[in-house]
Structure formats: structure tokens, C-alpha cells
Design a binder for these strands. Structure first.
Lengths: 297, 297
DNA sequence: CTGTTAGCGCCTTCAC
DNA sequence: GTGAAGGCGCTAACAG
């Protein structure tokens, strides 16, 4: 009867329950950069995995500032989150948060520099290989590689994968890896440059979809038909760029949503006593073939 | 001395404090669509405003599903959030969550259809007017308007603003408002169409930056010089599209981050007893002039 | 099987 | 001034 009376608009107080149970059913997601487009899919994947269970997530954006990060960390711990996911803005290793955190911590995207932490990050070397293997499968032999800032591990690692896959096929990159910035503009300029120096190339592999969009523009300006005359591909599979390109752009998807989901599942399992493990797990990407490398027929 | 001993690694338990205080210092952010690019800046603005104070935010993505939304709502209330921000994916009014929510609720981006709720949303009519006023100030007189889906209030309202500003200047739109989809592809196709029918136009106002990018491509293909021969502008000021365009794209920024900040501030003030108010507040946008409407010199 | 009670960690009050 | 006690809402353990 009491129950019936309260049924109308009664909500149990999770706080009290948490206080008693020693478990809040909450997880902290500490990001260093909401602006960037890599964090969001990861966040979605994590939200997804947790949403099914009964856990809610505290989102904190440290804006790349260590002080703010420490502040948020303290706040999250004082709120007794059951676990923590730390999402970086780049795939370069980042400093470990601290050693004495009383809850499981998973580093996503940006791995921790402490090998005793557990991290999960995209396999960029493999991604570079996959791209080259696809281009070779398309019959391309004279391939140039235009990419972003050398300061980014993602750029260097993809380039490593590119070189190793070429070597494995008995081929060589045309010219050097061209590093500069992650922009369409650089894609346009670099493509003009490489086409002037090496007019006989049959493929341009770009380090990001943005760069690839620039490459497509220049190819069009110079009358090079894509993909018949010149194949173009990118990385990241940023749909707004890839599916609206002329022709639509082949790309390597880093499976970030899955990465977020795995991170969440690992934290979740650790809550139930599973061992979190340590070291860095590399998540393979996925080739998404579109018309910029394979002609429609 | 006890304090000293604990200073090493002691974190006060916010739960216990909250239980006693009747205040958790948490706010729920209920979104219907993390994927979309409008939610993120709002979220950042809110996180920003709250981060300064001591409040943390629970992020819940309902994925546009009402059931899931109700589920999350219950969860958030059971966690005794002090307030709620509901962020929709479109600017079309959405159904009110419920009438009996015991904490302040602010609707952001998608206003509530219940006038007793408080909502804040971009002023799209005014944005349309601002765009036209800018084009007229640039000396344009024969303006076409290509936009997205008619089903979106944002498209219709901007078009209303466009028409009213033209009328106020004694001008008329060239052709009808062209509604279709929010894509580069449509921007390309529609621009080709309108240039064929009305070769004498001197400006194309596009309903989004994506559409505007398509318009720029077609203008280039057809040899129309931008901005001398044809001005092009968009809406949203999506930097990745605007600053990489050839030429860089003039756009109307909806100030979404500010919108998120205001929403957070309103919730925050309501926590301290301030009246939340009701009705819909329309936040004006901001003109960002770039080279697609004003020639560099 | 239903009803009572103790205590989770903190803060505020009141007594000393 | 320092110190003890009560209670926030819940659940687990125990008593009836």
C-alpha cells in the first residue's frame, strides 16, 4: 500500500544505495579534446556499451590541460566512479594519470606511456599496410604518399606501414613521404607538386580524408581522371568528406566506435573482478572501398 | 594529525555529502544524437560553464529513441542530478520530457513544444536575414537560395529570413527556394541547375556549408569566378569545411558553444533558486566573412 | 515471512 | 575551543 502510494512518482535514491554498496554504477570519461573528431565516436561506443548495463558516464573535458585534468580526476574520484576511461586527442603515448588510482583505468586512443597501464589504440602501422595492399590489388605500382604533421605518431606509423607493405611487394614509394599539415590545402598543394615531379604516378595515398579531398581537387584541376588514371585514398573514413567527394573516397576506418566499446567493456569486466591486464592493444582498422580507387561499372 | 595522515591519498566522499546536503553537484545532459555535429559544441559550452563551478555532467545519448530517453531520464533522476539539459538534434520543437520533473530543465537547440518549459535555440530567421543583408552589402542583387530538407525547421526558417530581408530591400529571390538534402552533392547539382536557368545570378546563398562547398565546386567547373562573378555563402561555419574551401567560405555561425554555456548558466542559476523562466529564447548567430563573398585585395 | 535495526561517510548541531 | 551524536535514504542482517 505504501508502495502503491509511492508508485506514482517515486524514484529510488541511487546515492544512498551507492553509499552502502560501495559501488556507484558510474564511470568517468576523461578526455583531453572534445573538439577533435576522434573522441566522439569513442565516447559513443563507450556510452553504448555502458548504456546497456546500468552505468552512467561522467564526461569531463580537460581541454588538453594537465592541471584541469588533475582537477577532474580528483572530482571523479571523490564521486566514487567505479572506473575511468582516458581518451586522448592523438595516438601518441601520453603520461600515465597516476599510479595510486583505486579504480580500473583504461586509456583509449592515446595509450599510456606506462606499460603497466592498459591501453587500446588504433593499429596505424597495419592501417598503412592495408591501404597499400588495396592499392596494389587495384593494380597500382607507382604510389606517392602525402600525409600530415610529422609530429603525429599516426602519420609516422601509417607511413611505416606504407613503406613496409611496399617493400614486401618489391615496390618502392615514389618520392619521399610528404609530411606537412592535416588539411585539404596541403593535399591540393602536395598533389600538384608530386604530379609535376612524377607525372607517371598511378596512385596518391593520403594520410587523412581531408588531405585526400585536396588531392581529388587537384587531380580534377589537372585533368587526371580518378580512379582510371590516378587512384586516391585517405584515412579515417570521415563520412561527411568521403561520401560527398567526387568520386566517393576510399578510406581506412579506424573503428573508433568499437574501440570505445572495447574500452568500456574492459572497465566493466574489471568492475566484476576481472583482471584488467596491461600493455597496449592495437585495434585493426577496416578498409572501406569506394569509387576513388575502384571504378564503378 | 589525523588530517595529516590522510592527506596522502584521501578523497572525501561526495556521495555522503550529497546525501546529506540534498544536492549532488551533478547535472544530466540528455542528447538525442551525439553523432550530429551540432550537439558537440553545445556540450562543450555547457561543460565549460559547469567546469568552472564544481558541477560534473552525466552524459546520456538516447539515440533519438523515446524509450531510451525515458530510461535515461529515470536513471538521472534516481542519481539525483540537480538539473537537466536536453539537447535535440534539430531545431524543430520536440515533445516536453514530462511535467513533474523535480529539477530545473533547459531545452537546448531543439526547443520544447510546451511553452511553460524554458528553451534556447538558434535564431534561424534572423540568420537568414543576416546572410542576405551581407550579400546585399556586397552589392549582390540577383540571389538564389539552395538549401536542405524542407522537413527541417532550420531550412524553412532561414528561407523565411532570406525572403523577408530581400523584400525589405525591395528585391526578390531568383527562382524558388530549392529544398532537397544537406549534402555537397545537392549543392553541386542545384548550382548547376540554377546557373543554367538563371545565368545572370550574382550570388548563391546555401543553407549549409556542405551545400555551399558543392556550389563552389560547380562554380569552378563552370568557370564562374568566386566571388567576383558569383558570391557563395553557407550556414553553420563548420571550420573544417569553410576554411579549407577555395576560396574560403563566408558563413553564419550559430554560436552553439555560447548556446550551451547559456543553457548551463540558466540551470546553474536555477539551482540557487533563480526563476528559470519559460518560453523560447532565440540566440542570434554571427556573420563570419571570408573570401567567397568579399574579394581579397 | 514480515518488521525492525544498524550502519554506509559525511556534516551540522549541540553539549561540554 | 574540542568532541560526541544524529540523521540524510537505503539495504542487509537479524529478530519476531
Amino acid at each position: 500500500m505504501i508502495a502503491a502510494a509511492e508508485q506514482l512518482s517515486f524514484t529510488p535514491n541511487s546515492l544512498a544505495r551507492a553509499l552502502l554498496a560501495g559501488r556507484t554504477g558510474t564511470v568517468g570519461l576523461l578526455t583531453s579534446d572534445l573538439e577533435g573528431r576522434f573522441v566522439i565516436p569513442i565516447l559513443m561506443g563507450a556510452e553504448d556499451a555502458f548504456g546497456a548495463g546500468q552505468v552512467d558516464v561522467f564526461l569531463c573535458d580537460a581541454r588538453g590541460d594537465t592541471i584541469r585534468e588533475q582537477h577532474h580526476l580528483r572530482a571523479l574520484l571523490s564521486r566514487r566512479v567505479d572506473g575511468l576511461i582516458v581518451v586522448g586527442r592523438q595516438t601518441d603515448p601520453r603520461r600515465s594519470l597516476a599510479h595510486d588510482i583505486p579504480v580500473p583505468v583504461v586509456y583509449a586512443y592515446a595509450p599510456s606511456d606506462d606499460p603497466s597501464d592498459f591501453s587500446i589504440t588504433p593499429d596505424n602501422v597495419r592501417a598503412g599496410q592495408m591501404a597499400i595492399e588495396h592499392l596494389i590489388a587495384c593494380g597500382r605500382r607507382r604510389i606517392a604518399h602525402i600525409t600530415g604533421e610529422h609530429a603525429y605518431a599516426a602519420a609516422r606509423e601509417r607511413a611505416d606501414g606504407v613503406q613496409s607493405a611496399l617493400r614486401a611487394a618489391g615496390l618502392e614509394l615514389v618520392g619521399n613521404v610528404m609530411y606537412s599539415e592535416w588539411s585539404e590545402r596541403w593535399g591540393r598543394d602536395a598533389t600538384a607538386l608530386v604530379l609535376a615531379q612524377h607525372p607517371d604516378i598511378d596512385a596518391v595515398l593520403c594520410g587523412s580524408d581531408q588531405i585526400a579531398r585536396g588531392a581529388l581537387d587537384t587531380a580534377r584541376d589537372l585533368g587526371r581522371a580518378v580512379p582510371d588514371d590516378l587512384a586516391v585514398m585517405g584515412f579515417d573514413n570521415w563520412e561527411v568528406l568521403t561520401t560527398n567527394a567526387r568520386p566517393e573516397l576510399t578510406s581506412i576506418d579506424a573503428n573508433l566506435q568499437q574501440l570505445g566499446r572495447i574500452a568500456a567493456e574492459r572497465v566493466f569486466a574489471a568492475l566484476d573482478g576481472a583482471d584488467l591486464g596491461s600493455g597496449t592493444q592495437y585495434l585493426p582498422g577496416r578498409l572501406v572501398i569506394r569509387a576513388s580507387t575502384v571504378a564503378r561499372r
